[in-house]
Write a protein that binds this DNA or RNA. Structure first.
Length: 679
DNA sequence: ACTGCCGACATTTTT
DNA sequence: TGTCGGCAGT
């Protein structure tokens, strides 16, 4: 007869040698502490380059080795890229089980919950997630009456209104406070703003739309409102791990508490010196308040930096010491024999681009891979000039941050056609596609939408019964829908049909139709990889492809490209060599933040983040003149790098040298620069 | 009603 | 830089 024994999953410490992975050898003491932390809340305070990601990765695999079912681990990150990367690394450490860990952004995770359980709080089960652009379109419609009423004064723009509403929700503070803090000039419109917000909420509800904030708010509401749902969902999160905790906002902190309310095993990892998202409501007080919110928090500090040379850290330490709010952080590295970070001032932006390009070519000759170098900047557009130069020199690059291809008008137009089929209530998408048709403007589109919505269930059929004056114009759209119907679950086919219909419209509408047409063709291939429209739509909204992603699709075999990135998008990444360009006052710190100490601090942290991305070499560059409307004017170096001692940040001199051999390659003042270190 | 043109403008950073 | 709003013409 069989003898049954009950085997409890063991969460108690066990002999380190019984693990597949030799954690003790691979991790330092503090990291070990975090990886082997057993029960209850923990806050890991980790300076730049101290192995935050590494620690989380190993913790995931350690938990799985200890028998925690992977699907009961929730790993929340800021970007999907970060989550995917971590799980990939964990998989190669341990095994395939790691892929089953629930990982992703807050927004993504919440969307999953709402797709499954949203009906419990009255959400449609085919809601559409709208991006800020769509949200602004809605607000624009609502704002119209006030706009005409206040013709002569400046009524807040759709952008401002959206920002106010979103901030108020993310920070969980009343609109009055948002106006007081950021928009004093709109205070007198307070009551109107409240009303617009109400109408905006109603509109979304009536149309089955959720914006980014709704994903978090509705999930929070679901968990607070329905105790059984909270118990169920929290019961499936035996361990909750949160990356970049310093950049969570109030709403996210509340969510984390709810999601981990059953087991109370929550580990938050972050660095207060790297908080760079307050514009989105991030509140670094979340970090300081963590121990109050979760009682019996273990605090673990990771302090040893493995990434950068001491020379780079010296500069980073000097910078962060200039913050008005003090950080108790001094990064130390065992790598003491590095080069000093360099400060390079060029004549103008052109020359800055040429310098960076030539340095990159030079480093490539030294066997540094392009993909191990990055150029960072404050604003997406700060790299335009450089991009021209890189193209000219045939240096392949990808750009993170800046304009997203899925936010481009032509892609949104195509997607809108899929959206109406998936969610026929979506007026914003209807409006978009109707307005594309010749002879239909705002007025007709509005009437048509009213017509569609006044009928029975099937919106598309209803459209076929529109009055004759419209039917003619709608003919080709209706025949398009006819073709789409049978292939509803084949995104690739759908996009192909829409493209055939849309490309002629595109050519009429845009001057640069050529490029856009190419985008659309590539987009077809991307769509074909999806198996459902729902997934496609959701992915493209929550994880928009970078502008270059569509192009890089074809060139996988080529040399892995150089990285251009905004500092925000560079978070958590590292490279052998980093160029930080446009270190100008008004750029970093941004001109918008110069009269507010807190914002100024955040800009400083931004520069700190940029510098700490570099492992071996760091160059800060700036042009001494900038061309603006009336010709050139002189610039000011960033206040953050003023008066930094020469033995911390070394100024370089540039020598000019005409190159005779390849005179044919020289174009308009494209002199070659020879780089000499100054004294 | 819709389209196209012109001048003014404000202009981060991201899910 | 491209986007927005107003205006005149079809």
């Amino acid at each position: 007869m069989k003898k049954f024994t009950l085997k409890k999953p063991s969460y108690e410490p066990r002999d380190p040698s019984s693990y597949t992975i030799n954690y003790e050898k691979l991790l330092n003491e503090a990291q070990m502490k975090a990886v082997f932390h057993q029960k209850g809340p923990a806050l890991v305070i980790a300076g730049a380059g101290t192995g935050k990601t590494r620690t989380l990765t190993y913790r995931v695999s350690r938990l799985i080795e200890d028998g925690v079912p992977p699907e009961q681990i929730l790993l929340l990150t800021f970007t999907r890229r970060a989550a995917a990367q971590m799980l990939e690394r964990a998989t190669s450490l341990l095994d395939e089980r790691c892929q089953k860990v629930k990982g992703g952004t807050f927004h993504h995770y919440c969307s999953q919950i709402l797709y499954r359980f949203g009906n419990k709080i009255g959400l449609s089960d085919s809601f559409t997630i709208i991006d800020p652009g769509d949200a602004e379109d809605v607000i624009q419609l609502i704002r119209q009456p006030w706009q005409s009423e206040y013709k002569n004064e400046r009524f807040p723009s759709k952008k401002a209104l959206f920002h106010i509403i979103s901030t108020h929700l993310n920070k969980q503070v009343p609109v009055v406070d948002v106006l007081e803090d950021e928009f004093k000039r709109f205070q007198k419109f307070h009551d109107h703003i409240i009303e617009i917000e109400q109408q905006y909420q109603d509109y979304k509800h009536a149309n089955g739309l959720l914006d980014f904030d709704d994903l978090l708010i509705q999930t929070k509401f679901l968990l607070e409102d329905q105790e059984d749902m909270r118990a169920y969902i929290a019961g499936r999160n035996r361990h909750v791990l949160v990356d970049e905790y310093q950049d969570t906002n109030r709403l996210q902190a509340d969510l984390i508490a709810l999601l981990s309310s059953k087991f109370n095993n929550v580990m938050a990892v972050g660095d207060d010196a790297q908080s760079i998202y307050s514009f989105r409501g991030a509140d670094l007080n979340n970090m300081f308040e963590f121990p109050e919110r979760f009682s019996d928090t273990s605090i673990i500090r990771l302090e040893e930096n493995y990434r950068s040379t001491q020379q780079i850290l010296d500069l980073a330490n000097t910078l962060i010491a200039r913050a008005s709010r003090k950080f108790d952080k001094t990064l130390r590295s065992p790598k003491t024999d590095g080069d000093l970070p360099g400060l390079i001032k060029t004549q103008d932006e052109r020359e800055q681009s040429q310098f960076v390009t030539q340095m990159i070519l030079h480093m490539r000759e030294q066997q540094i891979e392009l993909s191990d170098m990055a150029v960072l900047f404050r604003n997406g557009r700060d790299s335009y000039d450089l991009e021209v130069e890189l193209n000219r020199s045939n240096i392949p690059f990808v750009k993170f941050g800046g304009q997203k291809i899925t936010e481009a008008a032509h892609i949104k137009d195509v997607l809108a056609h899929l959206r109406v089929l998936y969610n026929p209530e979506d007026e914003i998408a209807w409006n978009r596609i109707l307005m594309l048709i010749d002879g239909i403007g705002p007025k007709s589109a509005g009437e048509l939408i009213n017509w569609i919505k006044s009928g029975g269930q099937n919106r598309v059929e209803r459209l076929q019964t529109a009055s004759d004056k419209y039917l003619n114009k709608l003919k080709s759209l209706l025949s398009l829908f006819g073709k789409m119907k049978p292939v509803m679950d084949q995104p690739g086919e759908l996009v192909t049909f829409v493209n055939t219909y849309y490309i002629p419209i595109c050519k009429k509408k845009f001057d640069d139709a050529q490029k856009r047409t190419e985008d659309l063709e590539n987009f077809e291939k991307i769509a074909a990889k999806y198996t459902s429209v729902k997934e496609l739509l959701e992915d493209l909204v929550l994880d928009p492809l970078d502008g270059t992603a569509i192009e890089t699709e074809k060139s996988e075999k080529d040399e892995s490209p150089l990285i251009l990135s905004t500092i925000h998008s560079a978070k958590g990444l590292e490279w052998h060599t980093v160029f930080m360009i446009q270190c100008l006052d008004g750029v970093i710190p941004s001109g918008y933040s110069v009269d507010d100490n807190e914002q100024l601090d955040e800009e400083l942290r931004l520069l700190y983040v940029a510098c700490t991305r570099a492992k071996e070499q760091l160059f800060l560059t700036l042009p001494l003149t900038q061309s603006g409307g009336f010709g050139d004017f002189f610039t000011n170096p960033s206040r953050f790098i003023k008066d930094i001692p020469k033995d911390t940040l070394e100024p370089w001199m540039l020598n000019y040298e005409e190159e005779d051999e390849n005179a044919n390659q020289l174009e308009d003042g494209n002199q070659n620069l020879r780089i000499d270190e100054g004294s």
